[in-house]
Amino acid sequence: MKSLLQRYSVQLILITLGGLITYLAYEEAIGLYTLSVLMFMGVNIILSTSLNLVNGNMGEFSCGHAGFMCVGAYVSSILGVLLFAKDKVFGAPLINPDLALYFFPLIILTGGAAAAITGLLVALPSYKTRGDYLAIITIAANYIIISLIENLGVIGGSRGFMGMKTVVNTMNDTFDLPWMVIWVFIFTVGCVWALRRYNSSTFGKGVSAICQDEVAAEIMSVNTNKIKTITFMLSSGLAGIAGGLFAYIIGYVNPGSFNILKSTEVLVMVYLGGMASLSGAVLSAILFTILLELLRPLQIIKWVVIPLLLIILMQFRPEGIMGNRELSDLFPKLKRFYRFK
């Protein structure tokens, strides 16, 4: 009985939680505002856990996460509108909009794949040198991506791109459920699950070997370039997925939403949670989303408060909330009740 509970408790909790949120959203028991905060929470969890893979687990310093998010957001937005919505530039939908519901996850994944390929292009030249190079090149990539889109008139340039609301509405017409809530939930759980599996495999442990001693890793048969590439692509791909979801939640994207300030937000989440701690990254994304909402009345002043918080954190708890430990390290007894594989 106990082992059965241990085996399925996580699935049970997740299905209950997902079902509950969906039901409450469907019955309109939670307001649109709360709902959008919950969805941003999911997006932030994906962003923070995926950047944590590179900056925490691998010990590199990537600073342009929002750039990859941007690629994912635009690719999945354009693809979705092109296929399923009537648009003044792209014309009539290419596929019967009734199918949007089934194609939606593929559209989001395509955005992720595009972001992963962008990540590959950024990672490749970074092997020649070490250290700060990745930081500089990711910031540069962030700027390049935004400038490119700002200058692409076809997709709205700096005014932005929309039409995704139509796609979301078609999904809801096909089958009356709060689809965005469901998709965000599924992709968030999927992201944490994938990272958890990656980190706990011997293959993925090569990442922390690189972080701890790259020379020893390479000499003890770890193909460090390959592992670094795959890891960076996974991280940027997940950022792309987060970007796609973000675009469809808001129904509108513009390059300005993915600037260096957004990248900084993600960095704050990673350092808040603790480097190399997956549960820390999840926790801090949740806290950070709530914090941002609380600080919203302060408007631009929040960008005084947030860095200040970071400085205070670095002073008193430089290792972040969780350090490099997981929830199950802090509460070993928890392991008896769940298994997350």
Partner: peptide, 27 residues
């Protein structure tokens, strides 16, 4: 030059990277 934030067992296991024989998607 051991990997000090990794268990003793993992230190040996990671050294088998060269002959893992499975890839990212298998993981």
């Amino acid at each position: 030059r051991l990997w000090n934030q990794m268990t003793v067992l993992d230190n040996i296991k990671v050294a088998q990277h060269g002959k893992l024989g499975y890839g990212f998607f298998d993981a």
